[in-house]
Simulated scan of single mutants.
Amino acid sequence: MAFINWHITLSVIIVVTIKVTGTTFFLLYLPQIFPPVLERSLNSTSTEKSITAPSLSPTTFEGNFKYSTTENSRTGCPIRWDFQDGKCYFFSTNEENWNKSQSWCLKEGATLAVINNSDEQRFLKYRARSEVYFIGLQYNLSQRRWRWVDGSEDIEITMSISPPEFDCATIGVSDEVEPSSCEISHRWICEKIAT
């Protein structure tokens, strides 16, 4: 009669059960933890609003990544855009330099985010968490002043360095808006009026 070591057999069964359960939960919740960036597409770089039945999903493209989208009818913002105080904000997951970031926003009918008050700055900082995002603020060296992409010069924000060492601005990591090189790749925040 063969001798069976029940301790080893029981340990193997427990380990296999835990691995199968963990893998199942990982695969089940992967799209919620990481937005669906698994499908690649080179066809478009525009955000499409839903014009079909709710069961069908048009797509949004960010760079080469395709996302499922529908319009959020309560806010007038496309999916993956956050609504706050009558505006829609898009927080990218890709990284580009400042000029490419602004170009992407313009293709979406938006601009890089313009901070109009301390509440908006707190919202963007809270939403950015520990990531660094470009916003629509650049330093004009010849005029020696900061200027928003909408042409305004009113800056009612907290900045960390003045005069700046760099010519673009980011939000994230710290509580203040920080200067950054326009050529470094960062994530970006687009802003447009909700429809």
Score class of each variant (00 low, 15 high):
F3W: 12
W6D: 00
H7W: 09
T9D: 03
L10Q: 07
L10Y: 07
I18N: 03
K19Q: 12
G22Q: 13
F26R: 12
L30M: 13
Q32L: 09
F34L: 01
P35V: 01
P36W: 00
L38F: 05
S44A: 11
S46V: 13
I51N: 11
I51E: 05
T52Q: 08
L56R: 05
T60G: 00
G63H: 02
F65D: 00
R74T: 12
G76L: 11
G76Q: 09
G76M: 10
C77L: 07
I79Q: 13
D82K: 15
D82C: 06
T93I: 01
K100H: 07
L106V: 09
L106P: 00
A110H: 04
I115Q: 05
N117V: 07
S118E: 14
S118T: 14
S118K: 10
E120G: 03
E120Q: 15
F123Q: 12
L124W: 08
Y126P: 01
R129F: 13
R129P: 01
S130K: 14
S130W: 10
V132I: 10
F134R: 02
Q138Y: 07
Y139C: 13
Q143C: 01
R144E: 15
R144Q: 15
V149F: 10
D154V: 13
I161R: 09
F166Q: 14
D167I: 06
I171Y: 00
V173D: 03
S174K: 08
D175K: 05
E178F: 00
E178N: 09
S180I: 07
S181G: 10
S181F: 05
I184K: 14
W188K: 04
I189H: 04
